[in-house]
């Protein structure tokens, strides 16, 4: 097991290395100049040259790259050229919001997708199964922001049931400690703030979670049907086990495997979808931060944040792989 983990972790290193080269080259090959982004219309050749010098952009590319990698290995992800703040510090400030949103969406998707999938699998090709299939295909087909605005329009603008934007009502005056709104509320012992945070989370989580919900539902359905046709399930029924026991011990136990993989694979998509969702709901997360950076030509923020995103993606994949190997011993020796 340990050997498997080490091998997989080492395998990620060349990918990361390749990523750093691609990102570095990519941002420098594209037209556009950070100095002009900083100076705007006041740019004169002397000022541009001075800024190039202060940012180290006048040096040969390979030296810039070595410098960049050296910084990365020492935990220095660079500074924003717009406001001079450290990329890592800003990321740490924004990331909890994205995690809260993603976890919320995941809970929605898995919490609803598993029972729905099992329900559909109970009578394959029955009317309930057909309904669940059609609805889940609908779910996959709705762009996140269309669904997001639809939810806002119905539940916030028309019905006033839930708040439309933000993470918490600022009038509650909750002091940020961990930047996780819900955890902060618990730490402060503020029940009202916790409920308010949850209410703010509902619509974004549904908007972001709908596509994974549809996918989890479909996979659960397919996987349960698949396992239900196995010989050992028939045997279990033949020896007189109750239907409940067959379901929990024989079918779900085995149906879990593909479902976990798919849930893991969704995390990458969720991080991408979070960007859109954060914009729709003015959510204070990483996505909106990166989009702003791209809009402002903030080179170092873009370069490092995409790298951090890729790093997280690889890490999640690694965890999924390990989890899978843990659940399914056959993989480990493959």
């Amino acid at each position: 097991m340990l050997k498997f983990i080490v091998r997989r972790a080492l395998g990620a290193i060349p990918v990361l290395f390749g990523l750093s080269i691609i990102l570095f080259a990519f941002l420098r090959l594209l037209p556009g100049d950070p100095a002009i982004a900083i100076l705007g219309q006041h740019a004169t050749p002397e000022l541009i040259a001075r800024i190039h010098q202060s940012l180290g952009l006048d040096r040969p590319l390979y030296i810039q790259y070595i410098d960049y990698i050296n910084g990365l290995l020492h935990g220095d992800f660079g500074y924003s050229i717009i406001n001079g703040r450290s990329v890592l510090a800003d990321f740490a400030l924004r990331f909890p919001g994205t995690i809260e949103l993603t976890v919320g969406a995941l809970i929605f998707a898995v919490g609803l997708g598993l029972p729905l999938g099992r329900l559909a699998a109970r009578h394959p090709n029955g009317w309930l199964d057909g309904l669940v299939t059609v609805v889940s295909l609908f779910g996959i087909s709705i762009p996140i922001f269309v669904l997001g605005y639809l939810l806002v329009f119905i539940f916030a603008v028309q019905l006033h049931w839930l708040p439309a934007t933000g993470q918490i009502d600022p009038r509650l005056g909750l002091e940020p400690q961990t930047n996780f709104v819900l955890i902060d509320a618990i730490l402060a012992g503020r029940w009202d703030a916790f409920v308010d945070g949850l209410r703010h989370l509902v619509l974004p989580a549904i908007a972001l979670g709908t596509i994974p919900l549809a996918i989890v539902t479909r996979i659960t359905r397919a996987s349960v049907i698949d396992v239900s046709n196995e010989d050992y399930v028939r045997t279990a029924r033949a020896k007189g086990l109750t239907e409940r026991r067959v379901n929990s011990r024989h079918i779900m136990r085995n149906a879990w495997l593909p479902v976990t993989t798919v849930i893991g694979l969704q995390v990458g998509g969720l991080l991408g979808g979070a960007v859109i969702t954060e914009t729709v709901f003015s959510w204070n997360g990483v996505g909106s931060w990166v989009v702003d950076a791209i809009q402002n030509h903030d080179y170092f923020v873009v370069q490092s944040s995409i790298l951090i995103f890729a790093l997280i993606f690889l890490l999640v994949n690694l965890i999924v792989d390990i989890g899978y190997a843990f659940l399914n011993p056959r993989i480990r020796y493959g």
């Binding site: 390749g18 556009g32 995409i306 993606f313």
Partner: peptide, 22 residues
């Protein structure tokens, strides 16, 4: 390996960057 690297890039951001700069 090139495919691995490109698949681990957050696609949406990359597309935004290219669309912006080009």
């Amino acid at each position: 390996r090139i495919v691995d690297v490109m698949l681990s890039l957050p696609l949406l951001f990359v597309i935004l960057v290219v669309a912006k700069f080009l």
